[in-house]
Design a protein around this nucleic acid. Structure first.
Lengths: 220, 220
DNA sequence: GCCCGGACTGAACACACGTTTAGCATGTTG
DNA sequence: CAACATGCTAAACGTGTGTTCAGTCCGGGC
C-alpha cells in the first residue's frame, strides 16, 4: 500500500490488448494483497492505463473481479491447478515452469480457499471429486489401501496436500529454502515415506485412541 | 458490511471494562472478516461504546491490532492453540468447549497464517518447534518411525494438521457436517489409519519416484 | 468547594478510493 | 464530408472511514 502508485509498469508484451493487460494486472494484485487492498488505480498503473479505462471495460471493480474469476473457473474446469495439491512432478524443470506460469492464479486461489469465496468452493469441490476418483482408482488397481471412510480420507488428504501450497511461505522459511519448488521437493521424500510406511512404528497409538473413544484425532 | 451498523451488541458480561470489551470485539471482527474490512465504528458498536473511545484507548486502529496481537502472542507462548494442528482430544465435550472458547482467536490466527503477518510467523514457528520435539520424543520412545529428514517431515505434518483448521469450512461442506468438531472427528480415523499403516499398499509408488528422480512429490 | 485527570461522546475533518462526467483522438460507415 | 462508435484520459464528485476536536461527566485530592 505504501508505494502502490510507483508500482512498476510491467509490460512484457506491450502489444496485448489493454483489456487483457488489465485482467492480468488485477489477477496479480488481487492474489498478492487481496481484493480490498488493491485499488483500481494500482491495477491501472500496472496495466499502463488510466483508472477510468478499467471501469470502462469491466463496469466496476466488482465486475473486474467476476471477470477474473470466470476466467479462473474455466481453467479449473480444464483441470489446471491440480498441482496445488502436491506436485505430480514430471520433473523439476517443468515444475518450475508451471509454478511460474500459474503463480498469480495460485496465489489468488489460495486466498479464495481460505476465505469463503464462490470460486474457492468451486475449486475445492473439483479437487475433492478428483481426489475421490483418484483414490478409488488406486484402490481398484491394488495400489491404495481400502478404507471404511473414503470421503473423510479424501478430504483429509486433499487438505494435507493443499496445505503445502497455502503455507508455502512458512515452509520455505523454516526449512531455509529459497523458493516454493525447492520446498516442495524437500517434503517429497518424507511424504512418500509417510504414505508408504505410515508414521507410527506400530498400531499402539491408534489402539489407544480407539479404546478411549470410538473416534478421535491426531497429532502433528 | 451490509448491516454492520446493526451488529448486535453482544454483552455477555456488561461489567467488564470497556477496554477489554473493545479488544474482544476487535479480535472477533478481525478474525471474522479481516482487518481491513472491519471498521472502527463496527468494533465500537459491538463493544457498546463510541468510535472515538476505541482510539482513546488504543491510539489508532493499527494500535488496536497490535494490542490484540500482543495478547495472542502471550497465549501462543502459553501453548494454547496446539489444538489447531489436529485435536489432541481428551474427549468430544472438552473439544467443543475448547473450540468455542478459542474460536475467535483461531479464526484470527488462521487468517494470519495465510497472509504473511508477524503473529502468523510467530505461531507457526512455535508450532513447528513443538512438532519437532514431539516427533523426536516419539522416535526416542519407539513410537514414531525414524526419518532422514526430520525438519521436512515435521513441517509437512504440521501443515497437514493446520490444513484441517484452515480449510474447516470446506471440510464441513463436502462431508455434510454441521460444525468443525464433527468434521474433525470424522477425519480422525482415516488419519490414524494413514499414520499407522500408510496410504499405499506397498512401496511400488515410492520406488517409482525414487528411480525416476532422486527426490519427488506426491498426490492428494 | 475547587480543580484536575481520565473515561467518554457527538460533530466535524481529511483523505483515500470507486465512480462519473466531459471531452479528445481515431477509425469506420453512410 | 458528416455522423458515429470505440478506446482512452484528466478532472471532478461522493462516500466510507480513520481520526481529531471540543466538550461533558465523574471521581479523587487539596
Amino acid at each position: 500500500m505504501l508505494n502502490m502508485s510507483s508500482a512498476q509498469v510491467v509490460d512484457p508484451s506491450p502489444d496485448r490488448t489493454a483489456r487483457a493487460r488489465i485482467r492480468d494486472a488485477a489477477l496479480h494484485l488481487f492474489g498478492e494483497v487481496g481484493f480490498r487492498a488493491t485499488t483500481v488505480r494500482a491495477i491501472a498503473d500496472r496495466a499502463g492505463v488510466s483508472a477510468p479505462l478499467v471501469l470502462h471495460h469491466f463496469g466496476s471493480k466488482e465486475g473486474l473481479r467476476q471477470s477474473v474469476e470466470e476466467h479462473l473457473v474455466t481453467q479449473i474446469r480444464e483441470g489446471k491447478f491440480a498441482t496445488m495439491t502436491g506436485q505430480l512432478t514430471p520433473d523439476e524443470l517443468s515444475m518450475r515452469a508451471n509454478a511460474e506460469e500459474f503463480a498469480p492464479a495460485m496465489s489468488y486461489l489460495a486466498r479464495a480457499l481460505t476465505e469463503d469465496a464462490e470460486v474457492g468452493r468451486h475449486l475445492y469441490d473439483r479437487l475433492y471429486q478428483d481426489a475421490l476418483v483418484y483414490l478409488q482408482a488406486g484402490e481398484d488397481a491394488g495400489l491404495i489401501r481400502p478404507t471404511g471412510h473414503p470421503e473423510a480420507r479424501a478430504a483429509a488428504l486433499l487438505n494435507a496436500g493443499l496445505a503445502q501450497t497455502l503455507l508455502r511461505h512458512h515452509l520455505e522459511r523454516v526449512l531455509g529454502m529459497d523458493d516454493q519448488v525447492e520446498a516442495m521437493l524437500a517434503i517429497g521424500p518424507p511424504l512418500l515415506d509417510l504414505y508408504t510406511d505410515g508414521l507410527f512404528t506400530d498400531s499402539r497409538i491408534r489402539d489407544a485412541f480407539s479404546t478411549a473413544s470410538p473416534s478421535e484425532g491426531t497429532q502433528p
